[in-house]
C-alpha cells in the first residue's frame, strides 16, 4: 500500500469528526450542576430533620445513590448520559450507575458468578486508588504525628 502508518494517522485525524466540546460542556454543566443542587437540597432537608451536618451529607449521598439506581434500572440514566457525558459520570450518581449497571447486566451469569463478581468491574478502580491514596495520606499523617516532622 502506498499509504504508510504515519500518513494514515494524519488522514484519520483530519477525517474523524471532533467532539462538539461546547455543547457537551453545557450539557455536563447543567446536568452535573443539577445533581449537586439536588444534593444540597437533600442536605438541608436532612439537617432540618435534626441530623448533624456529617450525617446529612451521608444521607444525601445515599439518597442520590438510590435515585441513580432507580433511574438506571428503568433505563433513563443511560439515556441521559448519552447527552450529559461527564455531567452523569462525575457526580456520585455516576458511581452508583457504574455499580448498578454491571449488576443488572451480569444477572444472566448468576447471582454469585455474575452479579457479585462483576458488580465493581467499572467502579472498582475508584475504590482501589481512592483507598490507596488515603493510605498514603494516612502514613504521612502518622509519621508526622509520631516524629513531629
Amino acid at each position: 500500500m502506498r499509504t504508510n502508518k504515519k500518513q494514515y494517522d494524519r488522514m484519520v485525524k483530519n477525517t474523524s469528526p471532533r467532539s462538539r466540546v461546547l455543547r457537551n460542556c453545557v450539557w455536563a454543566f447543567l446536568v452535573g450542576g443539577s445533581f449537586c443542587l439536588t444534593g444540597e437540597v437533600l442536605i438541608n432537608a436532612y439537617r432540618a430533620a435534626a441530623f448533624t451536618l456529617g450525617d446529612a451529607r451521608l444521607l444525601a449521598s445515599v439518597t442520590l445513590v438510590a435515585i441513580s439506581a432507580v433511574l438506571t434500572a428503568v433505563g433513563w440514566y443511560g439515556r441521559l448520559a448519552k447527552r450529559a457525558g461527564a455531567g452523569t459520570l462525575v457526580p456520585i450518581t455516576g458511581f452508583a450507575n457504574a455499580v448498578v449497571s454491571p449488576a443488572i447486566e451480569f444477572r444472566s451469569e448468576g447471582l454469585i458468578t455474575g452479579v457479585a463478581c462483576k458488580m465493581f468491574i467499572i467502579a472498582g478502580p475508584v475504590i482501589v486508588y481512592g483507598t490507596l491514596s488515603s493510605v498514603v495520606y494516612g502514613v504521612i499523617l502518622f509519621v508526622k504525628g509520631r516524629y513531629g516532622l
Binding site: C25, A28, F29, G32, G85, P91
Partner: peptide, 17 residues
C-alpha cells in the same frame, strides 16, 4: 452548589473530549 458542581463536571467533560 450548582455552579461549582457543574464546573467540576465541565472539567471532566474537557478531559473526555
Amino acid at each position: 452548589a450548582f455552579t461549582v458542581g457543574g464546573a467540576i463536571c465541565v472539567a471532566g467533560q474537557l478531559l473526555i473530549d
